[in-house]
């Protein structure tokens, strides 16, 4: 071993294990660890599909990726379906946030409102809503309306419940402190109760996001004649799994994107918790 080799070795930290630990221990270590996990999973899946699995049910990842571009994104109808799903989710989610927040604030504002209304809300939340899906279709029709309504009915509850929960148990000391400084009821709401509620609201937003997505997709699977749900059904029934997985991948991307938006907003508004 030459001297030059030795210096490079020591600069990069000796044994492979040490080198790996230096790599993942760096400032971007977590990101690298996550990326490596994803790559590892992809390789394992690819090998499994190529060597062991039944190709009718389990296509190789490379094939899925290919069909994402060749079958799914190349088809104008599927592109439209994906875009439709995105805006339906956006509208349903927006409605869930607006209504959940407004209703939650109204219910949680007084102890009377909370005690009279909240148990009923929890009861409604507990109903498995999928049994109501046919009713939604009857009322809102076969188009976007029923999907948005069903997404909304899923998304609104977690947000509403978390807003109400977040307005409870405000430390009395903060209230008394604010009152002693001359805070009005509106001041108390704006500067004490509302900020106290915000972290819980974000927990509701994240949960509400997945629920909205679930609601919209469920409704699509049930009724749609051209939506994402329709295509998943078609590819599943025609034993064509590659584009099916490609669509699932697209849905995951949509979910992750929405989730990231919420997460960034959360970090911005709850910096004080860190």
């Amino acid at each position: 071993m030459s001297i030059a080799d030795n210096t490079t070795m020591s600069r990069h930290g000796g044994s492979p294990l040490q080198r790996a630990s230096a790599f993942f221990g760096g400032p971007r270590g977590i990101v690298w660890a996550r990326l490596s996990l994803i790559v590892l999973a992809a390789v394992v899946l690819e090998l499994y599909a190529r060597l062991l699995a039944n190709p009718t049910f389990f296509p190789p990842l490379t094939e899925v990726a290919q069909s994402l571009f060749d079958t799914v994104l190349a088809d104008a109808k599927i592109r439209t379906a994906v875009l439709n799903a995105i805006w339906q989710i956006t509208i349903a989610y927006g409605l869930s946030i607006a209504v959940g927040l407004a209703l939650g604030l109204a219910v949680g504002w007084t102890s009377f409102g909370r005690r009279s209304t909240f148990p009923i809300i929890l009861l409604l939340y507990a109903i498995p809503q999928v049994v109501l899906l046919p009713l939604f279709v009857l009322v809102f029709g076969l188009g976007a309306g029923s999907k948005i309504a069903f997404g909304f009915s899923h998304g609104v509850f977690p947000i509403l419940v978390n807003v109400v929960a977040g307005m409870r148990n405000v430390n009395q000391l903060y209230i008394r402190g604010a009152q002693s400084m001359g805070a009005s009821r509106v001041d108390l709401f704006r500067h004490v109760i509302f900020p106290h509620m915000v972290p819980s609201f974000f927990a509701g937003l994240r949960l509400g996001m997945t629920m909205t997505l679930l609601g919209v997709i469920l409704a699509e699977l049930y009724v749609s004649t051209q939506g994402i749900g329709y295509y998943t059904k078609v590819f599943a029934e025609t034993m064509d799994p590659a584009p099916l997985y490609a669509i699932i991948f697209l849905l995951a991307v949509i979910a992750i994107t929405f989730n990231e938006i919420v997460r960034i907003a959360e970090r911005r508004f709850t910096r004080w918790k860190a």
């Binding site: 000391l173 008394r176 402190g177 002693s180 001359g182 500067h191 900020p195 915000v198 918790k273």
Partner: peptide
């Protein structure tokens, strides 16, 4: 009632709001 122009309170635990700097 509270007379914030004449009296201010300092409580046992900090009543600083954690959500504000």
């Amino acid at each position: 009632g509270p007379t914030p122009d004449a009296i201010s309170f300092v409580f046992q635990e900090s009543t600083l709001f954690p959500w504000y700097t």
